[in-house]
Design a binder for these strands. Structure first.
Lengths: 203, 203
DNA sequence: TTGAATATTCAGTACCTATTGAAACTTTAG
DNA sequence: CTAAAGTTTCAATAGGTACTGAATATTCAA
């Protein structure tokens, strides 16, 4: 971690060189709260299907509400440059953080989306696409392969009937779930979206 | 895997000893369909927060709709006794498969719940308890720690205000989500439950 | 109580994912 | 163009989770 010292030496001797927008040292009380949040968010990355480091970086950007650069992230979370770089890129790919250029600055900054609803919509959309859609496709394929014209008189066999029944149950469930996701994901640009408003009113 | 042969030799010489309720060999067409389903379900275990083997065992029990014993599972999925035992127990703990005794039989059998809605309710309830509740608790704790009477005049500081704002946004989101889960989980004993019916009507 | 059938546990290992850190690459100011 | 700043890549490896299979425990019929 020589980079840190180097950078701090530089700022000490010439504070206009490589100035970070927000110095990392922060009021200890605030910092504790932020760290608690970051830790928990990291542990719970599983909910998102995201690994710990990615979750922590996101948590840091979200909770501070500031654009931070790679070095800020490295310093605050004690992770390597490579890790920070890859994870930041992955978060950008997900679309829940964004790159930010500052006029006249070389360094790139990253900031989190501020709207939680939008963030979760994005995540939901992506996971639906990656995880639910393929399963639904497989199930439909399975049902097709068990259609009577493919299996002939075996269609009456007990084992076939049971399996087809189970496939039907699963298909119904996933189709309905899919539709709901679609809605949630579709009009979710900001704030409580339609799905949620409908539910809150009705319950 | 000597166990398999031993067991099969036994059945060959004395078919009343250790009879498995359903012989594993199954019509190849049906078997292919079941295997496709099992494979995909295993790959997608992540959705559930469950590992591949557990997901595959569950898929097998679900798709066949039959009570199977540990050896059936081992043979069909080519996994070790230890693995089968641990995974079956974990699935029982989740509550999505059940142990079954057959009168006059020593061996234990396992069968999957048949109602997909009930299964997912159970899973949702468990994940909410394990994953969402602790995060919400942490967030509330963070908000408490940033209350003006704890941090005094710092409450007006820009950094504090931003962090508090972010915490509030997250809290709103998670509280609402939590309520919806609660409903889904509460009255979900069977079939399309209230939450889903409300949504389907409204959308 | 005994022993055969069955079930569970767990130390060791295989396998896989995440992380590091140094080298290679890119960009821009001068 | 060159040097300095910044970014990305990737081989090596650390670290963690899942799996095996033999040892141990449990159950039940006789």
């Amino acid at each position: 971690m020589t980079t840190v010292e180097e950078r701090e030496n530089l700022s000490a001797t010439d504070s206009t060189l490589n100035p970070r927008i927000v110095p990392l040292p922060v009021d200890p009380k605030l910092r504790k709260v932020q760290d608690d949040f970051i830790r928990k968010w990291g542990e719970m990355g599983a909910i998102w299907g995201i690994n710990r480091t990615m979750a922590e970086i996101h948590a840091l950007l979200y909770i501070t509400g500031l654009p931070l650069c790679t070095d800020d992230v490295m310093d605050r979370l004690h992770i390597s440059r490579g890790n920070a770089s890859m994870s930041l890129r992955a978060l950008c790919d997900w679309g829940i953080i964004r790159r930010m250029h500052r006029r006249g600055e070389r360094r790139e900054y990253f900031e989190s989306l501020g709207d939680v609803w939008e963030m979760f919509s994005i995540i939901a959309a992506e996971r639906k696409r990656r995880e639910m859609d393929p399963v639904l496709e497989t199930i439909k394929q399975c049902i097709r392969e068990l259609e009577p014209d493919r299996i002939g008189k075996l269609a009456e066999d007990e084992a076939f009937r049971r399996t087809r029944q189970r496939l039907d149950g699963m298909e119904e469930f996933m189709s309905v779930t899919n539709k709901i996701f679609q809605q949630f994901v579709g009009n979710a640009k900001s704030g409580l979206n339609k799905v949620v408003r409908v539910l809150l009113k009705a319950l």
